[in-house]
Design a protein around this nucleic acid. Structure first.
Lengths: 193, 193
DNA sequence: ATCATTTTATACCGATTGGTATATTATACT
DNA sequence: AGTATAATATACCAATCGGTATAAAATGAT
């Protein structure tokens, strides 16, 4: 009884996510978005509400994808310490490969919007807290398997790994010497024992 | 022979620095700036060039102030480890006191502009590298005084402290539970031995 | 006091911003 | 096949963007 949408909503959202991720909220215009998404302005507004709603939808999609990606990477290895090492090293490798480093969409949003909009403060904080829970679970598995010491302060270590992940992700955007970030990753991983 | 400027250039730059620091480059308009600086648009352009030049001048002023502030704080204590602890704790205290946390102007710029403008990539990277040098000097002093172990990897530790400082500064903008950041600071400081 | 020089204030520029009104096109059900 | 409904395309909106032309006001040297 109705005309159906001529584009894939999820694909369009993916493209919007990539652009917001790369340029941030303020620097991305509706014209930029419609051009790259391949849709007209009224379609964007009819489908996603307004610019802020679209941004929020894109960020929620990112945090879901990011969390499950992290969880998967931490599950697929025998050694917990190796898993964390691979996590950091893949992050570093990817940022040095790409010419323009987008960093982490969630971290970018903490910096740009969290201080000025409580909605994004909560959304981004909860994602970081969720990451620390994933890290805790991974560390606990390492203790149970006997790989890690049983008297490890799992919570403190997980939170420190989150802090380190944030610090390295941000620092990579300024393209420091590779050895700089490699050395600090090695030292941080030495806390997992 | 000429009319003299009716405002203090350095004071005006300080005010611009605060606003760019709080809102970022894209979200700060010339009208915002002239209003808070108390000057007219042509005065701004005559004195500082254009928006980007003003931003760069503000950021350079910030990095200079920030570096000397950090160096001062690390000098004024007998124990090196205590000095670093105070550095982190004062940062945390300040961010929890203020309602809107501006974070670090340099870090904000790494996230917003470094990936899209080589000038700011270089400027911000050099500041972070400079901080790591200050940290190295401080740690070396601790070794010479006998407080720290002589086999400490000073470079790796200094770089890790920079990474941790960045991570905590960013995370604070999402207002996590106080215990979260306190615990990770304690664990990071345990690397200084 | 006059004059050259620079800052100031007002007003304006075209371009772009986020967001919509309108009218046309395409679809699913009767 | 006709009709109700929603998505599309075009064109437009006021507001704001970064930046400037112009002219009045203020200054220090003569």
């Amino acid at each position: 009884m109705v005309r159906q949408r001529g584009f894939d909503k999820e694909k369009a959202l993916d493209i919007a996510m990539e652009l917001f991720w790369e340029k941030g909220y303020a620097a991305t215009s509706i014209s930029d978005l419609t051009a790259i998404m391949g849709i007209q302005r009224p379609s964007l507004y009819a489908t996603f509400g307004d610019k802020e709603k679209l941004f929020e939808a894109a960020l929620r999609k990112y945090t879901n994808l990011h969390a499950s990606l992290i969880r998967t990477k931490l599950q697929n290895t025998i050694s917990v310490k190796e898993a964390f090492r691979n996590l950091f090293e893949e992050l570093i490798e990817k940022e040095y490969k790409n010419k323009v480093s987008k960093g982490c969409f969630c971290i970018n949003t903490i910096v740009e919007l969290a201080p000025h909009d409580e909605k994004f403060e909560i959304l981004t904080r909860e994602h970081e807290m969720y990451l620390s829970v994933i890290f805790q679970e991974t560390l606990l598995k390492g203790i149970k398997s006997g790989e890690l010491e049983s008297n490890l302060d799992v919570k403190a270590l997980a939170q420190t790994l989150v802090v380190a992940l944030i610090g390295i992700t941000v620092l990579l955007k300024s393209h420091p010497e590779r050895s700089f970030v490699d050395k600090s990753v090695t030292l941080i991983l030495s806390l997992i024992k």
